[in-house]
Design a protein around this nucleic acid. Structure first.
Lengths: 331, 331
DNA sequence: TTATCACGTGCAAACGTTTGTGCAAATATA
DNA sequence: TATATTTGCACAAACGTTTGCACGTGATAA
């Protein structure tokens, strides 16, 4: 165990009271400058650091926020966390990271353990597999400030920062339609999560606006992993009937499909979603939708800190941007 | 402020003492089963959660570890954190994340604020710009368990998990040499950080073993960013004298160079380092050295938890693996 | 001379737990 | 029936802070 120097050790060393030390270190006006000088000197000499638990217990706040993401090891989330950490650090807050790993039970467990007191506020992006949101609504009932980003739960009246996902998907789909392509498939993520549903809706809206009838089989729903993208493309190829273009709701699935296409010597225009950093260094640079994840993180963090300070929640929607690269151009 | 239910609220509701509640909830043998039942029921009914600061203050431990990385938004680090979080979660520990952003002053500030009490232990990867390690050695003197990973400070007698960087670089260089290539340049990171220095040494060792005299100008030292890689390649091109191959100490610099080569219609075999996920989806798949970052994170976390439990430190060196792709093959 | 007032400091309560010790009632033993 | 043992709980101290209040000192004003 770490042998700690407490405030009373400093007090004893100077033969003054504990309260004098505390006030001196906080630059309280009713302590003489001479005493402050001595206290600061002695505190430094003894290497005194206040015990943060005692401080937190006393103050009822810990200057810490928690971030819950499905997986930290995805560029979108690590960039968002980067933005969050930036704002947090500027405001003297610490950041705790939790991964739900996209499994509902993990998420429940994390949220429950957070529900009381451990942190001053929570920023979360919900797990793919989450079917209900009782754990979150309970946490909110307890008064915990909560801001969702990207994957939000619209029924909860808390803060949110998200992208206009439908619009991003609409733009990508329209980009195909404008090239005269009509038979466009959509690879969707699990539609119980709003982002995937919105992207599917954006796709459908674009198709409808251009008068294209979408067959149910044109939409495929599965987590957007590289493996799933590859599997999907394999099945399309072995199925024999290929689309003229594919609108993927995620870059990883698009990459998986791209590799299979390369192996099989086929080339179908495709687009991804998220602008993962690898998009423009792929052998076939991938058209994708930029979500400005760092900025999203910064905005979410700022909103949370504002809420902690008593300001009201907001619901921010960021405009996506279609970044066109060669993968989506018909040859 | 959050209105909290405290243990005394539960005690009042049942007209028993606070200590009975505490013991009942901890399944203490001297409390009757009937009482335990009632307490658990009432605690649930009131939604009581123990205040973690009070518990921490009392127990002197907080079941939290801190992770300091240069930048979370790099695959290597987010993967390592993924591994750390996995082990931490399994053992009931929380994880706090701090980014040094590769600036020494940030790192100092973080380490100082952590030095006492805030966490039970620290896992760190030092910043590129760190010139001294007083802040770390102070923290260690205070008794804080510390495990370095990847970017270690060898003078400090603490735990460490790292890759045999020299070997990884040796293998990549040898891969060129075996193809009969001799004029191989090395793009190094800042050599005050041990990983970059080791990689440079590995390169030099391979060259020496194959009897190749390395000119000082063959080694270039700069942070391994995409921009620097591009700039480097530009300068080589405009300098007129091109190498036969380049061994990059980082994937990002290699990608930057690769793009410039493509724009200029040149093709020099190159290798990277880190096996970023984009390596095999590049337009010219990049030969790189796999560092097994998830595993590194897991091992570091396990060592730290062991140390917290009183076991001694270790110094683990992981064997790297050269993953050969097309970028390094001479045409 | 006495009342008034800063000024600088100490005292003690409080934050919500955990835990050693004490004590009464219930049970077992003689 | 009287004594010893167990059982089940309460009391109170402690963890390290912060902070309202009281208090003694010396200076200023009436």
């Amino acid at each position: 165990m770490i042998k700690r120097i407490s405030i009373s050790d400093v007090a004893k060393a100077l033969s003054v009271s504990v309260s004098t030390i505390s006030r001196a270190l906080h630059d309280h006006p009713s302590i003489s400058e001479e005493m402050k000088r001595q206290v600061r000197l002695k505190a430094k000499e003894l290497n005194y650091r206040p015990n943060s638990y005692a401080v937190n217990l006393k103050k009822g706040s810990c200057k810490t926020i928690a971030v819950i993401v499905p997986l930290i090891n995805r560029n979108f989330f690590s960039s968002a966390i980067n933005g969050i950490e930036e704002i947090a650090q500027q405001n003297g807050y610490d950041v705790m990271i939790y991964q739900s790993r996209n499994v509902y039970e993990h998420e429940r467990h994390i949220v429950n353990s957070l529900s009381f007191g451990k942190v001053d506020g929570v920023i979360a992006s919900v797990a793919d597999s989450s079917k209900d949101y009782l754990h979150y609504s309970q946490m909110v009932d307890y008064g915990m400030p909560l801001v969702f980003f990207d994957r939000i739960l619209p029924d909860l009246h808390v803060g949110s920062v998200r992208i206009d996902d439908a619009k991003g998907s609409y733009m990508a789909t329209e980009h195909f339609l404008k090239q005269g392509i009509r038979k466009i498939y959509h690879f969707s993520g699990p539609r119980n999560v709003i982002i995937w549903d919105d992207r599917a809706k954006g796709y459908a809206a674009a198709m409808s606006d251009y008068g294209v009838q979408v067959e149910p089989s044109w939409i495929y729903e599965n987590p957007t992993t590289e493996a799933n993208g590859a599997k999907y493309m394999q099945s399309l190829i072995s199925g024999g009937e290929l689309p003229e273009a594919i609108n993927f709701a995620g870059d990883y699935a698009a990459v998986g499909a791209m590799k299979v296409m390369k192996e099989n010597g086929i080339s179908i225009p495709i687009s991804g979603y998220a602008c993962e950093p690898f998009c423009d260094v792929l052998f076939n640079p991938l058209t994708s939708v930029d979500q400005f994840s760092d900025d999203m993180g910064r905005k979410a963090a700022q909103m949370l800190l504002d809420k902690i300070d008593g300001k009201p929640y907001n619901n921010i929607v960021i405009e996506p941007k279609l970044v066109i690269r060669s993968s989506s151009i018909r040859r």
